[in-house]
């Protein structure tokens, strides 16, 4: 019964997101055609007269009444068709998936690392509260985390990429490289991934570390920890089995909430490292008022976020059996 309500609420959520995706871009001033005449640099001004404008509006179906456009959009989604991007002149699904695969790789790798590191460091810190370790870790993590991510990225590029020439300084693959084995391709992607992922890890580890430390401190004060101690269990065992598992609960929620921010919030890192991804794509889509691309990109990203939330919900229930009974 509980599961059904949950699924229904997710369906309602998706439908309202679909409608928002359609109407929000259209509320902004301007339309997709204004960028066909030139950007802020405008190295090739194009004059769009009324006749051409009408032709273009008809071509993209933007001349129809709004409800008809909405209907066509919903129908397209039901058929799995996200439309055709006005500016990029390509199918929206192709563009979004092209960017999303790199974003998911980058965000996925970074999230996995900062999660594990943040949780471990937070737990260690809390367990040694006010000790040398705690103070050291606290100072260290907070100071590196407070660097702005684009600055950190530039620093990495100059120190590790240029001076040591250890790492490639831009992109996600070596351009035009021919790989003899898939392993080589993976290696190349890995080399390109390291610096941007490191930047993201450092930028995000502070929050998770602090939350874990706090949550752990709360748990340590609980009676069951005292009981465990009274039972004579080893410190290590108490920390791992009793304290950490319970302290993890708020972390799961936070990671799920952050998933959405991580996808669009990587734009700084993407820009600094010229890494392909969905953050930059979204920015361009908004600037160009590319309605179909905006709708498609938001839709796919929300689906990813909803999935992340769904997984978090399930994990939560698994970690904390009390949730199931409510």
């Amino acid at each position: 019964m509980h599961r059904i309500t949950k699924i229904i609420s997710y369906i309602i959520l998706i439908i309202s997101i679909l409608s928002f995706n359609f109407f929000l871009p259209r509320v902004m001033p301007g339309d997709p055609l204004s960028f066909l005449t030139g950007g802020p640099a405008m190295d090739m001004p194009i004059v769009l007269d009324k006749e051409m404008r009408a032709k273009l509006l008809a071509y993209y179906g933007l001349d129809k009444p709004l409800q008809q456009q909405f209907y066509a959009y919903m129908l397209g989604i039901l058929h799995g068709d996200l439309g055709w991007s006005v500016y990029f002149n390509a199918p929206v699904s192709e563009i979004v998936i092209g960017g999303l695969k790199w974003t998911l790789l980058l965000v996925g790798a970074a999230t996995a690392i900062y999660m594990v590191l943040g949780i471990l460091l937070g737990a260690i810190s809390a367990w040694n509260r006010c000790g040398k370790r705690d103070v050291g870790l606290l100072t260290f993590v907070l100071s590196i985390s407070s660097f702005p991510s684009f600055f950190l990225g530039m620093l990495f590029i100059i120190l590790l990429g240029v001076n040591l020439s250890f790492f490639p300084i831009s992109g996600a693959q070596t351009p035009f490289a021919e790989y003899s084995t898939p392993f080589e391709a993976a290696l190349d992607a890995f080399r390109h991934l390291l610096l941007p992922a490191m930047t993201l890890v450092i930028a995000h580890i502070g929050g998770i570390y602090l939350l874990m430390r706090n949550s752990m401190l709360n748990v340590i004060g609980e009676d069951y920890i005292l009981t465990a101690r009274a039972k004579g269990l080893s410190e290590r065992y108490i920390m791992h089995t009793h304290a950490m598992k319970n302290a993890l609960l708020p972390i799961i929620t936070m990671i799920a909430l952050r998933a959405g921010f991580m996808i669009s919030g990587t734009i700084f890192v993407e820009t600094v490292f010229a890494y392909p991804g969905v953050g930059r794509l979204l920015y361009d889509a908004v600037t160009y008022r590319d309605y179909p691309l905006l709708q498609g990109a938001f839709l796919i990203i929300t689906l990813v976020i909803i999935t992340a939330n769904f997984v978090a919900d399930m994990t939560y229930a698994h970690l904390d059996p009390r949730v199931k009974h409510e």
Binding site: M154, I157, I158, V162, S165, I169, S170, G171, P175, V272, F273, A274
Partner: peptide, 13 residues
């Protein structure tokens, strides 16, 4: 032709 992270740096390197 390619996009780079920093144009001047890419010329120098």
């Amino acid at each position: 032709s390619m996009k780079v992270s920093d144009t001047a740096l890419a010329l120098k390197t």
